[in-house]
Design a protein around this nucleic acid. Structure first.
Lengths: 337, 337
DNA sequence: CTATTCTTTGTAAGCGCTTGCATTGCTGTT
DNA sequence: AACAGCAATGCAAGCGCTTACAAAGAATAG
């Protein structure tokens, strides 16, 4: 235990010990190649000896790069975004970046405050799920030179970059799939969120165009849970015509619905088919395996980080380098529909 | 659109516009009560007009308070900690704090790098799930004057503060419960994590002390998932004596196990009883409702934030104000055991 | 009416880094 | 031998805030 264990080492402590200027130590840390190997070695030892940890508040202030990425999601307990968060967090920490997690709440109520917090910390990137409705906020984000990435969505007019897919197309594709499988009476169980509704609308439009008939339709509070699938079952049974396939806006809903249907003695998919959304880890493990829509959430995370990384090296944001990545989707054909 | 829309406002822009010094504006922002109301009003307008957002990197550097709290958890996709994260995030953002989320990985492989990142950003608080094994890291954390809170656990010798409960006691309590219900042949399905194992050991010790018999026992990779419960079922059936109750280290495991048991025609709990752990949202919604152990994860989050808040106002950390909060646990008696 | 205390504001010295520019030796050219 | 070019380092001016200390009035006390 050295005499001054309380004093925490600064850059110039290291510099003094290594017999160089603070500039050189700073360079060693941020761009090791530019310092001579012999010097580098002395600095390395000085860092080791002092237990130096850079102060990134100071560094960020001076360099105008915070190495902080704000990640705003509605919630994490039932969320389909978790894989995106994990992928992003993994990819970022390899680069010395750090994730500031903001939970905006189902109705995005906290979003303005969190965006302000991100701007105040001069986040290098702000990653949103979905878009920003409030025009004032949009304007502020557009003015700021942080990289703003909207994910899980492809807005018509994006603020900056976007990584996602078309929810409308998902709805249409599911409608086509369901028809092709020969189902005649679909019923939609949809969460009360903009993206779930876009999928629903896609489905309905396609279905009506192709068959002339309107699918059954119910909207549930967001986020949807296992138990909500259970309770929705009764409602479905009361519907005329009796549905032969239920399209759920989340795998959770599908899971609960199937559990309830099975314990009521129905066979899935023969008596009632079910389609989910999200391809959550348990989907493939269900009995029967769930037919659902897979989004490569991890890829969304990785693409977003790739954009950030590209920007980090380049100059300030220019209107022309707006990026838009469509990660698409895939219908995972299980045994439930 | 003013002529200099690109220039982002600083404290002295606001000060000039309001006709006061930067010190006064700073005070208005950090302690509104000390400035006279008339002045405050002028500052308010100046902030509004300039669209000023404080630079918290600069602020943090000067004040030595980052208003950043690092939160380190193994993962978020299957995790029981998510409620803690949400509660913490909510409580913190009310105070203008921000959460830095670090995913350490199931084996805590990333923990050292993340702790270093937190220290580098001069986090005001570092919240860990479980403890830190590496002694060098421990030492560094002890030396630092960030508040370090270990959660979901009550280590013998904690680094600083701890908010959690005794996993051993949970195991013992479950053992007592199971005996009291009349079960004779328990089987333990345990994730390969220190905390799950502590529960297991508690159970086994208590069971042997009371009955002289050793429970059946299997360890599964962490994190445990729905499908792992399903596949474990076969293993259980092969065990002699045939278990009459299975104690799972997570609700996921229990969920999968019950689904498989039911589809094999067993009645739960009559043919096979099941106990979970975690009281995840779906536990109460299962059929039969899951008997499980409830930990008030949200309370863990709130207590941790309360400690942080108390520290924020007080002086530097002193050995004597180590805090230890036992949030306890509760066996939720459902219908599965 | 003077002395004392409070309230409100200003002055200015940092906080611990980064980085443009200048400097110092070298190596290689002509 | 003189000089251009380059690699490695140092100097010092910030980055945008906070806060100890001082100052100036206003309020209260004696």
């Amino acid at each position: 235990m050295s005499m001054n264990e309380k004093k925490i080492a600064r850059l110039d402590d290291v510099a003094r010990l290594a017999g160089v200027s603070t500039a050189t130590v700073s360079r060693y840390i941020n761009a090791p190649d530019v310092v001579a190997e012999a010097t580098a070695e002395r600095i390395r030892q000085a860092i080791e000896r002092t237990g130096y940890i850079p102060n990134l508040l100071a560094g960020g202030l001076a360099s105008r790069r915070s190495r902080l990425v704000a990640l705003l999601v509605p919630d994490i307990t039932h969320s389909i975004y978790n894989l995106t968060i994990e992928a992003m967090s993994d990819a970022l920490s390899d680069d010395g970046y750090v994730v500031m997690l903001g939970l905006t709440g189902a109705d995005d109520a906290r979003a303005p405050a969190l965006i302000e917090a991100a701007l105040a910390r001069r986040a290098d990137g702000i990653i949103l799920t979905g878009s920003v409705a409030d025009p004032r906020l949009r304007a502020r984000l557009e003015r700021d030179d942080a990289t703003v990435i909207e994910t899980w969505n492809l807005p018509n007019r994006s603020i900056d970059a976007a990584v996602g897919f078309s929810h409308t197309e998902v709805g249409q594709a599911v409608a086509r799939f369901v028809r092709q499988r020969g189902y005649r009476y679909p019923f939609l169980l949809t969460a009360d969120s903009p993206r779930a509704k876009a999928r629903r609308n896609g489905f309905i439009a396609d279905w009506i165009a192709a068959t002339g008939a309107s699918p059954g339709d119910a909207v549930l509070a967001s986020p949807t849970r296992f138990g909500m699938g259970r309770t929705a079952f009764a409602q479905l049974r009361a519907n005329t015509p009796a549905p032969d396939v239920v399209i759920c806006s989340s795998d959770w809903l599908a899971h609960g619905l199937i559990a309830e249907a099975q314990s009521a003695g129905l066979r899935v998919p023969d008596d009632l088919a079910v389609v989910g959304f999200g391809n959550l880890p348990f989907a493939a493990e269900m009995q029967p395996a769930l037919t659902t829509v897979r989004i490569d959430g991890a890829r969304i995370g990785r693409e977003a980080v790739a954009i950030l990384r590209r920007r980090a090296t380049g100059a300030a944001r220019k209107p022309e380098d707006a990026v838009r990545v469509d990660v698409g989707f895939e219908i995972v054909v299980g045994a439930s529909a």
